[in-house]
Write a protein that binds this DNA or RNA. Structure first.
Length: 645
RNA sequence: CGCGGAGUAGAGCAACCCGGUAGCUCGUCGGGCUCAUAACCCGGAGGUUGCAGGUUCAAAUCCUGUCUCCGCAACCA
């Protein structure tokens, strides 16, 4: 059944480091939609890939002692590996370092320049020479460089700009007239009110401060900055060319939907459409900004050993369980949260108990009562209609939910139908029917209805859990798996013979697995720590230490710094007779009254700096006792101003 | 008053735009069943929807105020 084309993309992943499971959500979400559309008969093109240029990568590569290209090759390989591990069916994996991409981007840049949409000007800012960085007025700390505290001066850097202002009106109209362009709705308001209506500033699209990028062909000091490079991937991948595009491009563009994280909605709904307008190409039909998947209450960090990678999770639970979890646990509007405990709970209750057990018991009964033969449904009863109605509404609901990107609800719709099937077994009590030879017809009908229901489930599950879907069809020894076969209840052919039941998902001993995971995390954390210690801190000489002037001082007064969450302003008596003011980031751990009167050690010759409007002269010593636990070093019985060494 | 999001049963969420008996999953307690993976089915307990006002016949839902939490920004000298 031909339904037309469907072009869907993920954002391309930045190759700075291996992505954790939260980053992998997007590819699974997109894959589920792509698979569903294919199932329905659309001619789908699904694009994903990697964004590989930029200063950060240049720096990471340098740190790692490899070339940028070597660096991105490695990370892009890891990212692609994860996509494959998660069993995603992208049609193309683009890398922004691909030759054809770079060439086309250069052409795009040139074209926009030639037609006047890109112009050369100067990037004006405040420059810190030692740091080689530009800062904006608001970034400065007390009018000085936020990194090193030195003076900055006004400086100009040559750069190319994209004329956003020219297309502002046009974009605003487009967004307002195309209700579904930015989804969900709340993001649309955000874009219009916060960025577009106040007026768009022309966008800086080139850099001279680093080299790892696509060079501007007609001005080799410059490389093309992220926007034109990265966003263009959606069209270069298809074979767009300003001098004449491929058939594939003509067929698939414009994209039906770009699936992206909520943090980059702005780039995809403002910069990208304007680039396309300037190129004279049609705009994507929709941009969906999805929420993020977070980790319980803790942020993941390597040193705590709680980073979760998709491939580790897959080893533990299998691909489909991971896919299922990602899709089911993610709320539609808010950020989701992930913990091992909830993963295992969901696995046991939904996959093992509800779904796996349903399939298992049904096929087992088929084998036991009819030698596996699927019987003709000859003896219908009223309850059967309820089951059939439920099957039908599952099909409708899944469609409705997927089309509005409510994957958790779509998956839930399938699961609640599985529950309905389990209930049907209780209502019809096949084991009781089996004891009565005269009820054989009814028993066959009940099992037929169950098998057909499971077939419905298997078909609709295929976008979410492809392997499981396949396994169910294999166990049923059935190949009627088209979407069209769901148009009416009863496509399963009587007379066929089901296979032997094998549990789809073995139950997990939650406590045991959690204990094992904790063990592994401890090990990982310990490893990470050792590395830190070895790499540790460089040795210094006595003369270096002598440069630091430490003094005993008494805290005479202490008040919180307004507008700052973490700062306390301390007034110290350091024996000089003059008050010394120090701002310290310990508000989280100490109340002012706990500090007044105490003696501490202060680094007295630290260069003053202004923090949240308070001039801080020096710092007091405190110890990091644990993650998120800091204790000030208090001393006792020493005169104010005494030198510490 | 920097920007934004959120506060609903023990936990996680839905309903909020477009007021009308607060629903789902997990957990818990009791019962049932035995085909099945200690699974499945039924029932109970558990919420004055953060707090205080207002509008209304009627407020989780609309309005005002207030408290708390979480992101981002600024800041841990």
């Amino acid at each position: 059944m031909e339904k037309g084309k469907f072009y869907i993309t993920t954002a391309i992943a930045y190759t700075s480091r291996k992505p954790h499971i939260g980053n992998s959500y997007e590819i699974v979400l997109t894959d589920a939609i792509a698979r569903y559309k294919r199932l329905q008969g659309y001619d789908v093109f699904f694009l994903t890939g990697t964004d590989e240029h930029g200063q950060k990568i240049e720096e990471y590569a340098k740190q790692a002692g490899v070339t940028p290209k070597q660096y991105v090759d490695k990370v892009a390989g890891e990212i692609k590996g994860i996509c494959d591990t998660l069993n995603t069916t992208y049609d193309k994996f683009i890398r922004t370092t691909d030759d054809y991409h770079e060439k086309t981007v250069q052409k795009i840049f040139k074209k926009l320049y030639d037609q006047g949409d890109i112009y050369k000007s100067e990037y004006e800012g405040l420059y810190c020479t030692p740091c080689e960085s530009f800062w904006t007025e608001s970034q400065l700390v007390d009018g000085k460089c936020p990194d090193c505290g030195r003076e900055v001066k006004k400086a100009k850097e040559e750069a190319y700009f994209l004329r956003l202002s020219k297309y502002q009106k046009q974009l605003e109209e487009y967004i307002e007239q195309n209700d579904n362009f930015i989804y969900p709705e709340s993001r649309k308001k955000e874009m219009l009110n916060n960025f577009i209506k106040p007026g768009l500033q022309d966008l800086c699209v080139s850099r001279t401060s680093f080299k790892w990028g696509i060079p501007v062909t007609f001005d080799d000091k410059h490389v093309i900055y992220v926007w034109i490079d990265a966003l263009s991937n959606y069209i270069t991948a298809l074979g767009y060319d300003p001098d004449g595009s491929s058939e594939q491009y003509k067929k698939y563009w414009p994209a039906d939907v770009h699936i992206i994280g909520k943090d980059i909605v702005r780039f995809h709904t403002i910069y990208w459409p304007i680039m396309l307008m300037a190129l004279g190409e049609p705009l994507p039909k929709q941009v969906y900004g999805h929420p993020w998947l977070l980790f319980g209450d803790d942020k993941m960090s390597k040193s705590r050993g709680n980073v979760i990678y998709a491939d580790d999770l897959v080893k533990l639970l299998g691909v489909d369980a991971v896919r299922y979890y990602l899709l089911a646990e993610m709320p539609h509007a808010n950020d989701g949260s992930i913990t091992y405990k909830t993963i295992i709970e969901r696995y046991n209750s939904d996959l093992a108990n509800t779904l796996g057990n349903l399939v298992n018991r049904t096929i087992a009964m088929s084998g036991k009562y009819f030698g596996g033969t699927v019987m003709e449904p000859v003896c219908e009863e009223e309850v059967d209609n309820e089951l059939k109605t439920a099957a039908k509404s599952m099909v409708e609901n899944v469609d409705k939910y997927i089309n509005s990107y409510r994957m958790a609800d779509a998956v839930e719709a399938v699961m609640s139908f599985a529950k309905r099937c389990n209930k049907y077994i209780d209502e019809t009590t096949p084991w009781a029917l089996a004891k009565d030879e005269s009820k054989k017809g009814r028993l066959g009908t009940v099992l037929y209805n169950l098998l057909e229901s499971i077939r419905f489930i298997a078909v609709l599950l295929s976008p979410f859990m492809p392997d499981t879907s396949k396994a169910i069809f294999e166990q049923m020894n059935c190949n009627v798996n088209s979407y069209d076969s769901l148009s009416s209840f009863g496509a399963l052919k009587p007379g066929s013979v089901v296979g032997t039941p094998t549990p789809l998902f073995a139950r997990i001993d939650s406590e045991k697995m959690l204990a094992e995971i904790e063990e592994a995390q401890k090990k990982a954390a310990a490893n990470e720590k050792t590395i830190e210690e070895i790499e540790g801190v460089a040795k210094i000489g006595i003369d270096d230490f002598a440069k630091v002037d430490l003094r005993v001082a008494e805290i005479k007064d202490c008040v919180p710094v307004k507008r700052a969450k973490k700062l306390l302003q301390l007034t110290l008596d350091d024996g000089t007779g003059k008050d010394r003011t120090v701002a310290s980031g310990i508000a989280q751990w100490y109340k002012p009254e706990q500090l007044i009167g105490k003696k501490v050690i202060v680094v007295s010759n630290l260069k003053p700096a202004t923090l949240c409007g308070v001039e801080s002269c020096g710092m007091i010593l405190a110890a990091d006792c644990a993650e998120n636990d800091v204790k000030v070093v208090f001393v006792d019985g020493m005169p104010n101003g005494a030198k510490v060494r």
